[in-house]
Amino acid sequence: MSIPEPDYDHLLRANLARVFNERDADRRAQAIQELFVADPVMYEPDGVVTGREAISAVAGKLLDQFGPTFRFTPSGRGIGHHGLGVLRWEAGPEGGPIAVTGSDAAQIVDGRIAQLWVLLNEPVVQ
């Protein structure tokens, strides 16, 4: 008997919209509670973040650092199988130039994000 696959696109898009684009700390905390397991781990290029509160703090700090119009936007559909999902994204000020691009890769356990890897693309030199 096979276990049904989660909706990788929906889950990873919700993570971008409801966690990494959410400026209200209470709404962000509620989203993390719904989208992540009890003890998630996020791997960033510069370190490892453990726990829901710590992930929320990282998201809030990013939004504060880059200004009020900074947004993460999905690029294409999230894909996955066997508990691993990937979604490409780009980020920058709304209506402005793209500042950074990357992908989120997530281990999904029981329909929630257990581990999240934030992968940044090399900057494009023009």
Rank of each mutant, 00 (worst) to 15 (best):
M42L: 02
D104F: 10
D39M: 02
Q126V: 15
P68T: 13
A57C: 08
A105M: 14
R77Q: 15
P93K: 09
G96K: 14
V125A: 15
F36S: 00
P68R: 10
Q107D: 09
G51T: 05
E94Y: 01
H81V: 12
G51H: 02
P6G: 12
Y43V: 03
A106Y: 06
R88G: 04
H82D: 15
L120V: 08
R52A: 05
L35P: 00
V124H: 05
P93M: 04
G51F: 08
A14M: 09
H10F: 06
D46A: 13
R23V: 03
V118F: 07
W117G: 00
A105E: 11
I32C: 09
E22K: 05
V125K: 10
F36E: 01
E5A: 15
F36H: 09
R52G: 02
A59E: 08
G47N: 12
E94W: 05
W117M: 01
R77L: 15
V86G: 10
M42R: 04
P97M: 12
V86E: 06
D9A: 13
G76P: 04
F20Y: 10
I55S: 03
D39S: 10
L62S: 11
A14P: 05
S2I: 08
N121I: 04
Q115D: 11
Y8L: 10
S103A: 15
G78K: 05
V124D: 08
G96N: 12
I55F: 01
E94A: 06
R23H: 08
